[in-house]
Design a protein around this nucleic acid. Structure first.
Lengths: 333, 333
DNA sequence: AGAGCGTCTGGGAGCGTTCACAGACTGAAG
DNA sequence: CTTCAGTCTGTGAACGCTCCCAGACGCTCT
């Protein structure tokens, strides 16, 4: 197998100079139709593919962005939301011929590696997923001045890092209202971690509706994992055995809560109504299927990518995007 | 913010030449301890980070591999197995400071993009996931001569593309034997797609044990998706209402089968025993929890990565790896 | 003392692009 | 006919590395 053709070979085959080939490649102005055609033909003839390294070396652009997953290793990808996010991001980026590098940021070694990667100029942008408040990596990343966006606000850095997210607070209100309307009187909630926007705002929305009824003893915290949903539900049940509804801030945790309720002999929704959040793929497959709040996660991912690409293209600032949620009624409430 | 330091700056700071810095960077022989120390110090002082593009340009190595997911877009990541695979691969590769680019190969445009990417020399290796028999992309990839491995054999290309996989056939036998031992008499099976090793070999293992009892009317095919598990189970039930067990070739499909059985009023395991395969995260959270075959997927991913790295490092061939499975008994059978 | 060998260092060349600049050509305006 | 603006093209100079070669240096052995 011979060497791969370079821009030189194409130029020779087309009977023009490197410069002209380069202009065609980057569709610059000022290329005659004839030259353009000749180059295009030469490219397919020779099977030429540009060498991104050589290009990057001079343009300082890599044609790739990095997605950083800030979760402990065993938890990352536990929630099906990750799959939606990554799949959607890849597709959207591919349309622009940008490739996606995925990195984990679960421990210090990871974080250092990510930072080195970004500082080294190996990515045109950073797509932060599930960064928590006070995340040192997020700060360091901002300092590198490499364009960065987040899926869901980074608590405390809302202005430094643009983001797209669902309207968590209003979504939680929708569910709380629904539970109240259905005549539930003692409504508890299992929140996400209180250093994430989903944790904070879904609790706020819940409190908006329940008001004084949202007492401390009806609130428990999880960490988005299924297991944490199980144990939070157990604590709730022990403390307030007569609760008749629970709003769980994610479907995955809700699946855990369901298991605990079943083990405790509570019927859902007869004894206890359960409301989830996400409308992820698990929602429809629990028993009973979850009544939940649908957040348009694919769309969130698309918008996040759009923001990132705008920044990469030179926008000096972009506005956050908040997308509406909808109530999806199934059998659990 | 000034320019990023280059190898020149480090050389100047250390009072040596570029050549010596380069030697330290690539830990070549023949660098005096004094020079080595000076360079190391200069590197941290200046905050130098090598420019991979410049390096790649001359070495023809990129320091990254690409994971190619050959599934239709809506199905990719539906199964939690994907998460395990990708998470494990990223971690293992990170140890060697290799980054992972993830690409989808769900339609022709995707496949062409992948090919262009690999042909362009943008990855040192390819990690194929869920490639089906007759996959044109796999063939084209092999022709590029870029090192490639697969998670699970690529049917028809077992010799061209090294792989790591679980012992699908023996795993299926374990489950079939278990169901027989438990006194089940009319045992059906829902297979995976018959152009994947998991589809083929898990059916073979099933047939190994059931022998003549594995009649056509007790076999249905799914496509690994939950939904396909639901419908396959429905077809089975219609055709053979008196079946008393079913071996489903993946937990995700088994979850679907469980839903169909419940809807049909069959009790699990009393009326119908259900056996899954994978022991993925869903297995423990279905109702009832699935008795299944555990395949060490993280280990499979690790081995696949190991094979790939060996090829990248110049090995001219590596042997496939087959890992043992174990029966995990829960409540569904 | 000289030869020979292993160790260490510096610097030129080259990897495949893009970019900036200079110059050629065209047609319209003066 | 000259001037000028607009269009188009070719070429040298980077970009930041690694590779290779030539040569310096210090030993040991004859």
């Amino acid at each position: 197998m011979g060497k791969r053709p370079t821009i030189h070979d194409v130029a020779a085959a087309a009977g023009v100079s490197r410069g002209t080939v380069s202009r065609v490649l980057n569709d610059d102005r000022y290329v005659s139709p004839a030259a353009h055609a000749a180059v295009r033909r030469a490219i397919t003839e020779t099977g030429y593919i540009v060498n991104r390294n050589a290009r990057s070396l001079v343009t300082r652009r890599t044609g790739s962005v990095v997605m950083v997953l800030s979760e402990p290793h065993e938890k990352v990808f536990e929630d099906p939301n990750y799959g939606v996010l990554i799949r959607t991001a890849i597709r959207r980026l591919a349309e622009r011929d940008v490739s996606l590098v995925v990195m984990l940021a679960g421990d210090d070694g990871d974080r250092e590696r990510v930072l080195r990667y970004v500082r080294g100029g190996h990515a045109d942008g950073v797509f932060l997923v599930s960064a928590h408040a006070g995340d040192a990596l997020a700060d360091a990343l901002v300092k590198t001045r490499v364009p960065a966006v987040a899926q869901g606000a980074v608590v405390g850095r809302e202005n430094a890092i643009p983001y797209a997210a669902a309207d968590d607070r209003e979504g939680a209100r929708q569910m709380a209202r629904y539970l109240v309307e259905r005549g539930r009187r003692k409504i508890a909630t299992i929140t996400g971690p209180m250093d994430t926007p989903g944790g904070i705002q879904r609790l706020e929305g819940f409190a908006d509706v329940l008001g004084r009824k949202a007492s401390r003893r009806l609130i428990e915290h999880g960490d988005w994992s299924r297991l944490s949903g199980e144990s939070a539900m157990a604590r709730l049940l022990e403390r307030t055995p007569d609760l008749d509804a629970v709003f769980v801030a994610s479907d995955l945790m809700a699946a855990g809560a369901l298991a605990t309720l079943r083990a405790a002999g509570r019927r859902v929704p007869d004894d206890v109504a359960v409301g989830g959040f996400d409308d992820s793929s698990i929602a429809a497959s629990t028993h009973p299927p979850l009544t939940t709040i649908r957040q348009p996660l694919a769309q969130v991912a698309e918008e996040t990518v759009r923001l990132l690409l705008e920044l990469v293209d030179g926008a000096d600032r972009v506005d956050p995007v908040i997308l509406p949620t909808t109530l999806v009624v199934r059998d659990s409430a």
